[in-house]
Every structure is written in structure tokens, then in C-alpha cells.
Amino acid sequence: MSRPIIVALHGVGSSARDLAAALAPLAPIAEVVALDGCEPFDRGPSGRQWFSIASVTEADRPRRVAGALPRLINRLDRLAADRGVDRHALTLLGFSQGAIMTLAMVAQRLHHGRAIAVAGRLAAPILPMEGRPASVLLVHDRDDPIMPISLSQDAAARLASAGDHVALRATDEVGHAISGPTLSAIRDWLVATPAPLLQSTLIEG
């Protein structure tokens, strides 16, 4: 694998195409494969979602996230098999609702590779560490009007306490979006953080 494979998970109501365009500047250092959410967006005429946010509550969100994880895992496993790599060799990168899914994968010990969460929150219980820790980057803007930066600060503290390798990068004047400062933080972290050494899952006939 000459370049790392970033699997990008978009925010609610958006699409793989939109996120792939936002992450295009990362192409020199990584291959970006953006996935569409598993469900049509149920609060608008277009877009996709990983889980519904209709009437969602703080208490109910973890259940919805848990319900969405098996479909995501299945798609990641198929992608990894197609590329002949271990699922954990993929770098997960989520924005907003996609970041919620990314952090849930780490917290539930379903991914112990590299994971990047932009403007997200941790909405899943953290299971005890049973294998290698994940390497996690959280990027959040101080002026985000949708997701306050305190959500990433809380997630970073909790995952670090659980034994994961965690970095938090704060940006300014980006809001709830991906922009130049976001991409710079991601690029710098990817270069500085080695991918896990995992054997290929490719089966040769």
C-alpha cells in the first residue's frame, strides 16, 4: 500500500461527493475513499445519514449509533477485503455525524488503527482496552455553532484516560466545516503518526 487509505464519513444530510471534494487537498499524501451514509436523509429531499436525528435526545443517541455500527463495519470490511488490507489499516476520517461514527468505532474497540474526528462528539460507551490502542486526532473549531468544542475536549479526555493515543487540535474561524486549517491539522498529524503495522488480509488463490 503506497499511500494510506482514508475512509471518509460525511455529516448528516450531506454526501460522499461533498466530503470527497472537501478532502481533495489530501490527495498527495493519501487516497481518500468517501462513503455515502447507509440511509437516505429523512429530514430533507436529498443527502444521506448514518442514523436518524429526528427527535434525537442525549439519552437516545447512543442507541442509534449502536444500531448504525454493524452496517458501517460491513462496508469497511468489504472495502478492506477489496484492497487486500486489514480493516484496522484503514484510516477513518469522519465529519460531524461521521465523526460520531468514527469515535464510536474507537470507543467500542472496533477500530484500533488511525482515526480522525472533525467537529464530532463521543456518543458510545468506551469498552475496556483488549488489544492495541487507537491513534486518534480530534479537530474542532473554537467557533463551531453546531457542535461546541467542549464535546471534542470531553471525548479526547475520555479516550486518553482509556489508553488511546489522542491528539486534539483547535482551529479558529472555520465554524462547522472543513477548511484550510482543518486540512493542515490533518495533514501534519498523518505525516507524524505512523500507520499500524498489520499483515495484509489478501488471500491469494
Rank of each mutant, 00 (worst) to 15 (best):
L103M: 15
V166E: 08
R109S: 14
A99R: 04
A8M: 05
V166R: 12
G67V: 06
H112E: 14
S52M: 09
P181Y: 09
A104Y: 06
E130Y: 08
A30V: 08
V139T: 06
V7A: 01
L127N: 15
P128Y: 02
R71A: 10
R187F: 00
D60R: 04
G84L: 12
A68P: 00
R3I: 06
R142W: 14
A59H: 08
L122Y: 06
F95V: 01
S52N: 07
L69E: 10
S46G: 14
P133H: 15
G37W: 01
P194H: 00
R121A: 14
A170I: 09
I146W: 00
A160K: 11
A80F: 11
R64I: 03
G13S: 12
R64W: 06
G67R: 10
G98P: 06
P25V: 00
T102S: 07
Q108C: 11
T102F: 10
Q108Y: 10
D141T: 07
Q49E: 13
S46I: 00
R71Y: 06
F41C: 11
A80T: 14
F51P: 02
R78V: 08
S96K: 12
D42M: 01
R187Q: 15
A80H: 08
A16W: 02
V85M: 13
P62N: 05
A192S: 13
M129I: 15
L127Y: 13
P133A: 13
P125V: 07
A59C: 13
D172K: 09
V32R: 03
V191Y: 00
P45I: 00
A68V: 00
R142P: 13
S2C: 05
T91D: 01
G37H: 02
P40G: 12
L138K: 05
E204Y: 01
G205R: 05
S135P: 06
L168V: 10
A117T: 05
E58G: 14
G205L: 00
V106C: 14
P128E: 01
W189C: 03
A16K: 04
A8T: 02
M1G: 14
P133R: 13
T171F: 06
V65F: 01
T193L: 09
H165M: 11
L92T: 11
E31D: 06
D164I: 07
P25W: 05
I149C: 07
M129P: 14
G98Y: 05
R61F: 01
R83V: 01
D77W: 08
L127W: 06
N74P: 02
P62H: 02
H10K: 00
G113A: 09
M101G: 02
P194G: 02
H165D: 15
F51E: 02
A99Y: 11
L198G: 15
G37E: 03
P4T: 07
R158L: 15
S161K: 05
A16R: 07
L69P: 05
H88V: 10
E39S: 10
S14T: 11
A160E: 09
D172I: 15
N74E: 13
L79G: 13
R169D: 10
H165A: 12
L19Q: 05
H165G: 07
G163N: 13
R114T: 10
A195R: 00
A54P: 08
G67S: 04
P145V: 01
S52T: 13
G113Y: 05
L90T: 07
S150G: 15
R64N: 03
T57N: 08
D143E: 08
T201C: 08
V139W: 08
S55G: 14
T102R: 02
A22V: 01
G67K: 04
H112T: 14
V139N: 04
